[in-house]
Nucleic acid binder design. Sequence first.
DNA 1: GACTGGCACTCGCTGACGACGAGTGCCAGC
DNA 2: GCTGGCACTCGTCGTCAGCGAGTGCCAGTC
Lengths: 340, 340
Amino acid sequence: MGLDDRKLEVLRAIVEDYVATQEPVGSKALVERHALGVSSATVRNDMAVLEEEGYIRQPHTSAGRVPTDRGYRLFVDRLSRVKPLSPAERRAIERFLVGAVDLDDVVHRAVRLLAQLTRQVAVVQYPSLTRSAVRHLELVPVSTTRLLLVMITDTGRVEQRVVEMPGPVEPEEITELRRTLNATLVGVKLVDTPPLVQGLVERAEPQAKATMSTLVSVLLETLVERHEERLALAGTSNLARMGPLDLTTGALRPILEALEEEVILLKLFDEVKSGAARVRIGDENEVVDLRATSVVSTGYGPGATVVGGMGIVGPTRMDYPGTIATVRAVARYVGEMLGH
Amino acid sequence: MGLDDRKLEVLRAIVEDYVATQEPVGSKALVERHALGVSSATVRNDMAVLEEEGYIRQPHTSAGRVPTDRGYRLFVDRLSRVKPLSPAERRAIERFLVGAVDLDDVVHRAVRLLAQLTRQVAVVQYPSLTRSAVRHLELVPVSTTRLLLVMITDTGRVEQRVVEMPGPVEPEEITELRRTLNATLVGVKLVDTPPLVQGLVERAEPQAKATMSTLVSVLLETLVERHEERLALAGTSNLARMGPLDLTTGALRPILEALEEEVILLKLFDEVKSGAARVRIGDENEVVDLRATSVVSTGYGPGATVVGGMGIVGPTRMDYPGTIATVRAVARYVGEMLGH
DNA sequence: GACTGGCACTCGCTGACGACGAGTGCCAGC
DNA sequence: GCTGGCACTCGTCGTCAGCGAGTGCCAGTC
């Protein structure tokens, strides 16, 4: 595939114009708006090649060209430079995130900020349980046979579960349980807890074995099995801007549906193990319902560790350089905030 | 306004047909589908009157009639009988709600259930803080000068805040603070706490006054000022069904936007003080962006007390009897669950 | 007086048709 | 290898006529 520099330049011009105008772009308009130094006829020849290679296509015979998913991919990989954020944007991010009172607030602010800046649908995953450590465990009696188990992690997240005990539990017993649990688990990463927790039952006093074992099974559930993560979502209304084109086709439904399925959204962050931004364009998405969209995602966390993912979902026709820069910047700031 | 029985019957038929078909209904179709016992000409005369009174209108001259907001209001108030839920629906509700592990889960399940059954957008308010009582307060040291304050309410809700202390705090001091706080506040309704909390500072030992006062100010914030309530939302994708009519006009945007504003949604539950369902049709909504929709809302809670609201937002063209019945039923079941 | 059948009229919808124009592909020439 | 030119395609837009659902009104009937 002989794509010389000019052809690439033509592709870039097409992507940029199409993103800006949302209309198929023709050869004449291209040479007018960009200093390509050649005539429209030449551009047409280049376009024919680009189309043959699958980077652009015509919605109808004899109408302008539109980038394909493959075209966007090439654009993102080789043709776009990272667009640095304007100072105003940086300030906006800082001002918006500073003043968050707790973890919930940070996540909420981050997701709204992201939606606002990119004008797309934003998704932020709460700091993952499995990647953080236990800060404190608390047991609160609710009734004689019921305890409320509260776990606080070092990312500030709080999980609670009601535990139905096999029999009445004495206050001193609770104190003792609390002491043991905290002594064993505080400071331990959640991923590393299961073996320790198992050991608790074995080492328990005979008469406390039943109690401890009940507690432990719930604890395990909370710690590990229930890594059903939480998500925050914002900017859904931006979908309505996705272009009346797609809107009339009713293609909006499946996207909205996908956005409601937490399980689906979590998949977007499955592989974000680093702070590098990942871009999935159209067909590249594993989630079928999101094949009409592009997803820009990245991991975030204090320092170099990643405790969660965040990103945006938008039309394939999006301003990739700007969006990527924004997602990265917000992720970096949120990461800093988590490091207190 | 002389609306005799038959005219009311005609109105009901129009509402029912329009809701079912989503198309303006004409006089001929009406007499065919409903046993009105009169000719289409008579129905036309009745329609003319109904239109004059503002209950129905014609989208265009010489097209069928469509109910107005006023027409729906009359229908809801006087013409619709409550539609009892089918046993299948009852079972679905029970099965779906049973098995919820904690408060978060109950709310989540409830909102999804509601969205699914009504096929509209569902909103559930988390049990209000102000209307519940303190079950337990916990202080966890985070660093030498920072404490994590965790409050657990009797509805199972957990609130936490990091408190920046004026100086280092000793472990014994924390134990003492914890004891005092719990002794004073456990079992007290949140609304009644402020005076008690104030008293805490006054009665504190002189050397602990600074510490206590810092704690108290945060406590007050958490208890009262911050009654920014939380919400759960589901079924947004159902909006896409609101009819391609409204969809093409782009009227979807403002609705999606309104649904993203928690402040706006909370207004929907401002006045739900009882378990009775409230219906706001079109223009009756105070929220301007929701004037194109109808809102069915109700309060819920254990027994007769109301700790929160839930409801749905949908097109004015909705199945009111069915929707009202569903909302009420779900609210009742959730209320029961909260009573453990 | 209330209802009905009949009829003329309105008006949105659909499809056909032609003019227009943006955009293309191709070719001969520089 | 690039360019100007030209024929061609095809989607869009406006016009226009035909269709049909639905109405309002009126004279007639019970």
